[in-house]
Design a protein around this nucleic acid. Sequence first.
DNA 1: ATGTTC
Length: 374
Amino acid sequence: MNSTLPRVRVIASPQSWVEGEALRQLEAAARLPGMRSAVGLPDLHPGKGAPVGAAFTSQGVFYPFLVGNDIGCGMGLWALDLPARKAKPERWAARLDLEGPWEGDAEAMLADAGVRPCGFEASLGTVGGGNHFAEVQRVEAVHDASTFQTLKLETDRLLLLVHSGSRGLGEHILRAHVDRHGAGSLAEESAEARTYLARHDQAVGWARANRAAIAERVMRGVSAAGRRVLDVCHNSVTPKEWEGGRGWLHRKGAAPSDQGPVVIPGSRGALSYLVLPLGDGEDHAHSLAHGAGRKWTRTHARERLRERFTPDALLRTTFKSHVVCEDRDLLFEEAPPAYKAIDRVVGDLVDAGLVRVVATLAPLLTYKTRSRRE
DNA sequence: ATGTTC
Protein backbone atom coordinates (compact mmCIF):
# COMPACT_ATOMS: atom_id res chain seq x y z
CA MET A 1 0.00 0.00 0.00
CA ASN A 2 0.94 3.61 -0.26
CA SER A 3 2.42 4.24 3.15
CA THR A 4 4.51 7.31 2.33
CA LEU A 5 2.98 10.73 2.75
CA PRO A 6 2.16 12.53 -0.47
CA ARG A 7 4.65 15.17 -1.46
CA VAL A 8 3.32 18.71 -1.66
CA ARG A 9 5.30 21.30 -3.54
CA VAL A 10 4.45 24.89 -4.41
CA ILE A 11 6.47 26.50 -7.16
CA ALA A 12 6.11 30.18 -6.37
CA SER A 13 8.50 32.85 -5.17
CA PRO A 14 7.52 35.04 -2.21
CA GLN A 15 6.67 37.77 -4.73
CA SER A 16 4.02 35.52 -6.27
CA TRP A 17 1.08 36.02 -3.99
CA VAL A 18 -0.69 32.72 -3.29
CA GLU A 19 -3.86 32.83 -1.25
CA GLY A 20 -3.98 30.77 1.93
CA GLU A 21 -7.21 29.14 0.83
CA ALA A 22 -5.49 27.83 -2.31
CA LEU A 23 -2.75 26.24 -0.18
CA ARG A 24 -5.34 24.67 2.11
CA GLN A 25 -7.15 23.23 -0.92
CA LEU A 26 -3.87 21.87 -2.27
CA GLU A 27 -3.03 20.19 1.02
CA ALA A 28 -6.55 18.81 1.38
CA ALA A 29 -6.34 17.27 -2.09
CA ALA A 30 -2.93 15.81 -1.23
CA ARG A 31 -4.47 13.98 1.74
CA LEU A 32 -7.02 12.13 -0.42
CA PRO A 33 -6.56 8.34 -0.42
CA GLY A 34 -4.13 7.13 -3.08
CA MET A 35 -2.61 10.55 -3.69
CA ARG A 36 1.11 10.54 -4.37
CA SER A 37 2.04 14.14 -5.08
CA ALA A 38 0.45 17.59 -5.30
CA VAL A 39 2.11 20.48 -7.08
CA GLY A 40 0.96 24.08 -6.93
CA LEU A 41 2.14 26.19 -9.86
CA PRO A 42 2.75 29.94 -9.56
CA ASP A 43 -0.77 30.73 -10.84
CA LEU A 44 -2.28 28.66 -8.00
CA HIS A 45 -5.58 30.08 -6.76
CA PRO A 46 -8.68 28.75 -4.99
CA GLY A 47 -11.27 26.88 -7.00
CA LYS A 48 -14.57 25.19 -6.28
CA GLY A 49 -13.37 22.42 -3.98
CA ALA A 50 -10.05 21.83 -5.72
CA PRO A 51 -7.45 24.51 -6.42
CA VAL A 52 -6.72 25.82 -9.91
CA GLY A 53 -3.14 25.95 -11.17
CA ALA A 54 -2.28 22.55 -9.73
CA ALA A 55 -1.30 19.04 -10.78
CA PHE A 56 -1.72 15.81 -8.84
CA THR A 57 -0.46 12.26 -9.20
CA SER A 58 -2.16 9.24 -7.68
CA GLN A 59 -1.82 5.48 -7.68
CA GLY A 60 -4.54 2.88 -8.11
CA VAL A 61 -7.31 5.47 -8.12
CA PHE A 62 -8.10 8.82 -9.69
CA TYR A 63 -10.51 11.68 -8.95
CA PRO A 64 -12.80 13.13 -11.65
CA PHE A 65 -13.69 16.13 -9.46
CA LEU A 66 -10.02 17.21 -9.49
CA VAL A 67 -10.30 17.72 -13.25
CA GLY A 68 -13.50 19.69 -12.82
CA ASN A 69 -16.29 20.38 -15.29
CA ASP A 70 -14.35 21.89 -18.16
CA ILE A 71 -12.68 18.64 -19.21
CA GLY A 72 -10.29 19.24 -22.11
CA CYS A 73 -10.00 23.00 -21.68
CA GLY A 74 -6.74 24.33 -23.07
CA MET A 75 -4.83 26.71 -25.33
CA GLY A 76 -4.32 26.57 -29.06
CA LEU A 77 -1.97 28.82 -31.02
CA TRP A 78 -2.30 29.54 -34.74
CA ALA A 79 0.18 31.33 -36.97
CA LEU A 80 -1.71 33.58 -39.37
CA ASP A 81 -0.56 34.50 -42.85
CA LEU A 82 -1.47 38.10 -42.08
CA PRO A 83 1.38 40.62 -41.73
CA ALA A 84 1.32 42.67 -38.54
CA ARG A 85 1.07 45.89 -40.55
CA LYS A 86 -2.31 44.70 -41.90
CA ALA A 87 -3.83 44.46 -38.44
CA LYS A 88 -7.19 46.26 -38.16
CA PRO A 89 -8.11 45.62 -34.53
CA GLU A 90 -10.64 48.43 -34.31
CA ARG A 91 -12.48 47.28 -37.42
CA TRP A 92 -12.30 43.64 -36.30
CA ALA A 93 -13.64 44.58 -32.85
CA ALA A 94 -16.64 46.21 -34.48
CA ARG A 95 -17.44 43.29 -36.77
CA LEU A 96 -16.12 39.99 -35.50
CA ASP A 97 -18.95 37.76 -34.28
CA LEU A 98 -18.42 34.28 -32.84
CA GLU A 99 -21.89 33.89 -31.32
CA GLY A 100 -24.41 31.28 -32.40
CA PRO A 101 -23.69 28.06 -34.23
CA TRP A 102 -20.56 27.86 -36.32
CA GLU A 103 -21.15 28.00 -40.08
CA GLY A 104 -18.68 25.16 -40.70
CA ASP A 105 -19.16 21.41 -40.64
CA ALA A 106 -19.21 20.59 -36.93
CA GLU A 107 -19.58 16.84 -37.36
CA ALA A 108 -16.62 16.64 -39.74
CA MET A 109 -14.46 18.74 -37.41
CA LEU A 110 -15.39 16.46 -34.52
CA ALA A 111 -14.81 13.31 -36.55
CA ASP A 112 -11.31 14.59 -37.35
CA ALA A 113 -10.67 14.72 -33.60
CA GLY A 114 -12.09 11.21 -33.15
CA VAL A 115 -15.24 12.46 -31.45
CA ARG A 116 -18.61 10.80 -31.97
CA PRO A 117 -21.80 12.90 -32.18
CA CYS A 118 -22.96 13.63 -28.63
CA GLY A 119 -25.67 16.28 -28.88
CA PHE A 120 -23.46 19.31 -28.27
CA GLU A 121 -22.63 20.01 -31.91
CA ALA A 122 -24.43 23.38 -31.84
CA SER A 123 -21.90 24.69 -29.28
CA LEU A 124 -18.86 23.86 -31.38
CA GLY A 125 -17.00 27.01 -32.37
CA THR A 126 -18.22 29.06 -29.40
CA VAL A 127 -15.80 30.55 -26.87
CA GLY A 128 -17.92 30.24 -23.73
CA GLY A 129 -17.67 32.33 -20.56
CA GLY A 130 -15.35 32.86 -17.64
CA ASN A 131 -11.72 33.28 -18.61
CA HIS A 132 -12.13 31.92 -22.14
CA PHE A 133 -11.14 34.09 -25.10
CA ALA A 134 -9.80 34.27 -28.63
CA GLU A 135 -6.99 36.81 -29.04
CA VAL A 136 -5.14 38.15 -32.06
CA GLN A 137 -1.56 38.90 -31.09
CA ARG A 138 1.65 40.30 -32.51
CA VAL A 139 5.15 39.15 -31.67
CA GLU A 140 6.54 41.59 -29.13
CA ALA A 141 10.03 40.14 -28.69
CA VAL A 142 11.92 36.95 -29.51
CA HIS A 143 14.17 35.58 -26.76
CA ASP A 144 15.05 32.17 -28.21
CA ALA A 145 15.45 32.63 -31.96
CA SER A 146 16.35 29.01 -32.55
CA THR A 147 13.15 27.57 -31.07
CA PHE A 148 11.11 30.39 -32.63
CA GLN A 149 12.48 29.38 -36.00
CA THR A 150 11.94 25.69 -35.36
CA LEU A 151 8.26 26.49 -34.89
CA LYS A 152 8.37 28.26 -38.28
CA LEU A 153 7.18 31.52 -36.75
CA GLU A 154 7.89 34.96 -38.14
CA THR A 155 8.22 38.17 -36.20
CA ASP A 156 6.06 40.23 -38.55
CA ARG A 157 3.14 37.80 -38.79
CA LEU A 158 0.11 37.82 -36.51
CA LEU A 159 -0.80 34.98 -34.18
CA LEU A 160 -4.11 33.76 -32.80
CA LEU A 161 -4.41 32.31 -29.31
CA VAL A 162 -7.60 30.43 -28.40
CA HIS A 163 -8.51 29.49 -24.82
CA SER A 164 -11.64 27.40 -24.61
CA GLY A 165 -12.89 24.00 -23.55
CA SER A 166 -15.64 21.43 -23.92
CA ARG A 167 -18.55 23.82 -23.15
CA GLY A 168 -21.64 21.91 -22.02
CA LEU A 169 -20.21 18.48 -22.76
CA GLY A 170 -17.61 18.39 -19.97
CA GLU A 171 -20.14 19.78 -17.54
CA HIS A 172 -22.59 17.05 -18.55
CA ILE A 173 -19.96 14.32 -18.10
CA LEU A 174 -18.87 15.49 -14.65
CA ARG A 175 -22.44 15.97 -13.47
CA ALA A 176 -23.54 12.54 -14.68
CA HIS A 177 -20.54 11.04 -12.91
CA VAL A 178 -21.00 12.90 -9.60
CA ASP A 179 -24.76 12.21 -9.55
CA ARG A 180 -24.05 8.49 -9.61
CA HIS A 181 -20.76 8.15 -7.76
CA GLY A 182 -20.24 11.33 -5.74
CA ALA A 183 -16.92 13.12 -5.39
CA GLY A 184 -14.94 10.09 -4.34
CA SER A 185 -12.18 8.18 -6.08
CA LEU A 186 -12.52 5.73 -8.94
CA ALA A 187 -10.57 2.48 -8.80
CA GLU A 188 -8.52 2.39 -11.98
CA GLU A 189 -9.71 -0.99 -13.29
CA SER A 190 -13.38 -0.50 -12.43
CA ALA A 191 -16.18 -0.28 -14.98
CA GLU A 192 -17.01 3.19 -13.62
CA ALA A 193 -13.45 4.35 -14.27
CA ARG A 194 -13.55 3.01 -17.81
CA THR A 195 -16.86 4.74 -18.49
CA TYR A 196 -15.62 8.06 -17.13
CA LEU A 197 -12.30 7.87 -18.98
CA ALA A 198 -13.99 7.09 -22.30
CA ARG A 199 -16.21 10.15 -21.88
CA HIS A 200 -13.31 12.26 -20.60
CA ASP A 201 -11.30 11.42 -23.71
CA GLN A 202 -14.23 12.41 -25.91
CA ALA A 203 -14.43 15.76 -24.11
CA VAL A 204 -10.69 16.31 -24.58
CA GLY A 205 -11.10 15.70 -28.32
CA TRP A 206 -14.22 17.87 -28.44
CA ALA A 207 -12.43 20.77 -26.76
CA ARG A 208 -9.52 20.51 -29.18
CA ALA A 209 -11.94 20.54 -32.12
CA ASN A 210 -13.72 23.49 -30.54
CA ARG A 211 -10.52 25.54 -30.44
CA ALA A 212 -9.95 24.66 -34.10
CA ALA A 213 -13.49 25.73 -35.02
CA ILE A 214 -13.08 29.00 -33.11
CA ALA A 215 -9.80 29.60 -34.94
CA GLU A 216 -11.50 28.96 -38.29
CA ARG A 217 -14.17 31.48 -37.37
CA VAL A 218 -11.71 34.17 -36.33
CA MET A 219 -9.53 33.60 -39.38
CA ARG A 220 -12.54 33.95 -41.64
CA GLY A 221 -13.52 37.12 -39.79
CA VAL A 222 -10.11 38.73 -40.27
CA SER A 223 -9.65 37.34 -43.81
CA ALA A 224 -6.60 35.28 -42.91
CA ALA A 225 -5.45 31.71 -43.32
CA GLY A 226 -3.44 30.01 -40.62
CA ARG A 227 -1.65 26.98 -39.30
CA ARG A 228 -1.99 25.37 -35.88
CA VAL A 229 1.34 25.72 -34.09
CA LEU A 230 0.40 24.00 -30.86
CA ASP A 231 -2.64 22.89 -28.88
CA VAL A 232 -2.43 21.75 -25.27
CA CYS A 233 -4.98 20.71 -22.69
CA HIS A 234 -4.77 21.95 -19.09
CA ASN A 235 -7.75 20.13 -17.51
CA SER A 236 -7.43 16.36 -17.72
CA VAL A 237 -6.54 13.09 -16.05
CA THR A 238 -4.21 10.75 -17.94
CA PRO A 239 -2.22 7.60 -17.20
CA LYS A 240 1.43 8.31 -16.48
CA GLU A 241 4.47 6.14 -15.93
CA TRP A 242 7.35 7.08 -13.70
CA GLU A 243 10.46 5.39 -12.42
CA GLY A 244 9.34 2.30 -10.56
CA GLY A 245 5.63 2.70 -11.12
CA ARG A 246 2.64 4.05 -12.88
CA GLY A 247 -0.45 5.98 -11.96
CA TRP A 248 -2.59 8.95 -12.86
CA LEU A 249 -1.75 12.54 -13.59
CA HIS A 250 -4.47 15.11 -12.91
CA ARG A 251 -4.12 18.61 -14.29
CA LYS A 252 -6.43 21.34 -13.06
CA GLY A 253 -5.43 24.56 -14.77
CA ALA A 254 -1.94 23.21 -15.39
CA ALA A 255 -0.25 23.16 -18.79
CA PRO A 256 1.75 20.08 -19.79
CA SER A 257 5.55 20.21 -19.74
CA ASP A 258 5.90 16.98 -21.71
CA GLN A 259 4.34 17.99 -25.03
CA GLY A 260 6.58 20.67 -26.46
CA PRO A 261 6.20 24.47 -26.36
CA VAL A 262 3.16 26.07 -24.71
CA VAL A 263 1.72 29.56 -24.45
CA ILE A 264 1.11 30.97 -20.97
CA PRO A 265 -1.20 33.95 -21.41
CA GLY A 266 -1.36 36.92 -19.12
CA SER A 267 -4.52 38.92 -18.70
CA ARG A 268 -5.96 40.57 -21.80
CA GLY A 269 -3.95 43.67 -20.85
CA ALA A 270 -0.62 41.87 -20.60
CA LEU A 271 1.86 39.89 -22.64
CA SER A 272 1.48 36.18 -23.31
CA TYR A 273 4.60 34.03 -23.08
CA LEU A 274 5.55 31.34 -25.57
CA VAL A 275 7.79 29.05 -23.55
CA LEU A 276 9.80 25.89 -24.06
CA PRO A 277 9.56 23.38 -21.18
CA LEU A 278 13.00 22.36 -19.90
CA GLY A 279 12.49 19.69 -17.28
CA ASP A 280 9.78 17.13 -17.87
CA GLY A 281 10.21 16.24 -14.26
CA GLU A 282 8.18 14.35 -11.77
CA ASP A 283 9.09 16.96 -9.18
CA HIS A 284 6.62 19.31 -10.84
CA ALA A 285 4.17 16.64 -12.03
CA HIS A 286 5.13 17.31 -15.65
CA SER A 287 3.17 20.55 -15.48
CA LEU A 288 3.42 24.33 -15.79
CA ALA A 289 1.31 27.37 -14.97
CA HIS A 290 -1.54 27.77 -17.46
CA GLY A 291 -1.96 31.52 -17.15
CA ALA A 292 -1.52 34.48 -14.85
CA GLY A 293 -3.96 33.17 -12.26
CA ARG A 294 -6.78 35.07 -10.67
CA LYS A 295 -5.81 37.51 -7.90
CA TRP A 296 -9.31 38.73 -7.01
CA THR A 297 -12.56 36.79 -6.88
CA ARG A 298 -15.12 37.65 -9.53
CA THR A 299 -17.32 39.38 -6.97
CA HIS A 300 -14.42 41.41 -5.61
CA ALA A 301 -13.30 42.40 -9.12
CA ARG A 302 -16.77 43.62 -10.04
CA GLU A 303 -17.16 45.66 -6.88
CA ARG A 304 -13.70 47.16 -6.84
CA LEU A 305 -13.31 47.88 -10.56
CA ARG A 306 -16.74 49.40 -11.06
CA GLU A 307 -15.56 52.21 -8.79
CA ARG A 308 -12.39 52.75 -10.79
CA PHE A 309 -13.31 52.23 -14.45
CA THR A 310 -16.15 52.96 -16.80
CA PRO A 311 -17.08 50.01 -19.03
CA ASP A 312 -15.78 51.90 -22.06
CA ALA A 313 -12.38 52.35 -20.41
CA LEU A 314 -12.09 48.57 -20.10
CA LEU A 315 -12.63 48.04 -23.83
CA ARG A 316 -9.10 49.26 -24.43
CA THR A 317 -5.96 48.05 -22.64
CA THR A 318 -2.58 49.52 -21.79
CA PHE A 319 -1.36 47.84 -25.01
CA LYS A 320 -4.01 49.88 -26.85
CA SER A 321 -5.57 46.59 -27.82
CA HIS A 322 -9.33 46.26 -28.31
CA VAL A 323 -11.68 44.10 -26.24
CA VAL A 324 -14.98 42.64 -27.41
CA CYS A 325 -17.07 41.94 -24.29
CA GLU A 326 -20.69 43.01 -24.26
CA ASP A 327 -21.39 41.21 -21.01
CA ARG A 328 -21.02 43.96 -18.40
CA ASP A 329 -20.24 41.72 -15.43
CA LEU A 330 -17.74 39.66 -17.36
CA LEU A 331 -16.00 42.83 -18.56
CA PHE A 332 -15.17 43.71 -14.93
CA GLU A 333 -14.57 40.15 -13.72
CA GLU A 334 -11.89 39.56 -16.33
CA ALA A 335 -10.27 43.01 -16.23
CA PRO A 336 -6.45 42.96 -16.06
CA PRO A 337 -6.17 44.12 -12.41
CA ALA A 338 -8.09 40.98 -11.33
CA TYR A 339 -5.11 38.89 -12.44
CA LYS A 340 -1.60 38.35 -11.14
CA ALA A 341 1.38 39.76 -13.02
CA ILE A 342 2.28 37.26 -15.75
CA ASP A 343 5.95 38.29 -15.81
CA ARG A 344 6.31 37.17 -12.19
CA VAL A 345 4.47 33.89 -12.82
CA VAL A 346 6.68 33.06 -15.80
CA GLY A 347 9.72 34.36 -13.89
CA ASP A 348 9.02 31.80 -11.17
CA LEU A 349 8.96 29.02 -13.77
CA VAL A 350 12.22 30.29 -15.27
CA ASP A 351 13.85 30.53 -11.82
CA ALA A 352 12.75 26.99 -11.01
CA GLY A 353 14.42 25.82 -14.22
CA LEU A 354 11.16 24.66 -15.77
CA VAL A 355 10.97 26.81 -18.90
CA ARG A 356 12.89 29.03 -21.25
CA VAL A 357 11.06 32.00 -22.78
CA VAL A 358 10.88 31.72 -26.56
CA ALA A 359 8.90 34.88 -27.31
CA THR A 360 6.49 37.37 -25.85
CA LEU A 361 3.21 38.12 -27.60
CA ALA A 362 1.22 41.33 -27.26
CA PRO A 363 -2.58 41.54 -27.57
CA LEU A 364 -4.24 43.39 -30.47
CA LEU A 365 -7.80 42.15 -30.11
CA THR A 366 -9.36 40.05 -27.34
CA TYR A 367 -12.73 38.53 -28.13
CA LYS A 368 -14.83 37.46 -25.14
CA THR A 369 -18.51 37.67 -26.09
CA ARG A 370 -21.05 39.72 -28.00
CA SER A 371 -23.95 38.40 -25.94
CA ARG A 372 -25.44 40.86 -23.54
CA ARG A 373 -26.26 39.71 -20.04
CA GLU A 374 -27.84 41.86 -17.35
C1' DA B 1 -16.59 26.49 -15.80
C1' DT B 2 -21.99 25.63 -17.35
C1' DG B 3 -27.76 25.70 -23.86
C1' DT B 4 -24.86 30.12 -18.97
C1' DT B 5 -29.86 28.37 -12.40
C1' DC B 6 -31.89 23.02 -8.30
